[in-house]
Amino acid sequence: MLTLGIILPILAQQKEIDVYLVGGQSNATRQAYVKNIPASFKIDTRVRIYYSRFLNKGEGSEQWNPLCQASETKNKFGIELSLGTKLQSLYPKPQIALIKHALSGSNLYQQWNPGNRQKNIRGEEYINFIKTVKDAIISLKQQGYRPIIKAMVWQQGEADARDIAGMEQSRQYSSNLKNFIEQIRKEFNSENMLFVYGTVIPIAASRFTGRELVRKAQFAVSNNSNSEFSVNNALLIPADDLQMLYNDYQIQHLKMMYI
């Protein structure tokens, strides 16, 4: 009872903070340009973000910042701006925090491999992601917060559908993604953590020989697929109608100037 008498007041003083994880390859780092953000969009800087040293060329990394872009370079931004801002408006209390690590062109079968299955080796990007999240969580606790991991946003799959990956890796995507989700949940002791991911490769291209296999695998893993690979609380979002980089209105404008 004495121990509880000490612990409970401490817990009561801690501020809850809802944490959302972001990972994947180029569509997770994202390639949108900051200069194209509409003036009407206001970033909610009450939201906090922590990102790995592999984003923004390391500038401002591995520390908590008010919500800002976290992409390959400072002139680009990703889902973090709209995600963080919208979440904070939907859930005014508690505070929202994002943790992000992503690497363009990275694959799931090797680079994001958790290394928890026989003959598998833990991939470098998985290691980087886990370290980034754990360091960020420790930092929040040191600042008096009680972090609660609410969900993970994942955008990846193109690299596993590439011709250079090989068709076998495309065929294994459902098994690999299911294993990845389950292991991420174990890492952070969050058994039913919501896992949200979007469809990939909306337009067929010759280099994506495993496109259909990966897209079918994405559906197979989703919560409502009723397949052997279905994962509880894994939510697949149709993303084929989202704007692609080559449709960037400023790039299109430049094309028109030279036609």
Rank of each mutant, 00 (worst) to 15 (best):
T29Q: 06
A32Y: 06
A32H: 05
I184D: 00
R48M: 15
T85Q: 12
N75P: 00
R185C: 10
P66R: 10
V200P: 11
T132K: 04
L8D: 06
Y173M: 10
L4C: 14
T85I: 08
V231E: 06
E72Q: 10
Q14N: 08
Q110G: 00
S104E: 03
Q14M: 14
F219P: 01
F41G: 05
K93P: 03
N247E: 15
V47G: 07
F77V: 05
V22D: 00
A151C: 12
R117L: 15
L81Q: 08
T132N: 14
Q218S: 09
I10L: 14
A159E: 01
I130R: 08
N128T: 00
K255S: 11
T85A: 13
V231G: 02
S71C: 04
E168R: 13
E187G: 00
V133L: 09
F195S: 13
I181Q: 02
E187H: 05
F208R: 04
V153L: 14
N189E: 12
A136N: 03
N56F: 09
P38S: 06
V133R: 01
Q88F: 11
I7L: 13
R46Q: 15
P202Y: 03
K186H: 04
L2Q: 07
R53T: 12
G24M: 04
F195A: 12
M256A: 14
G78N: 08
Y91G: 01
E59P: 00
E125F: 04
E158S: 11
I17L: 12
S175K: 03
Y51F: 15
G166S: 07
E182W: 01
L242G: 05
K93Y: 10
Q88Y: 09
E62H: 02
T45Y: 09
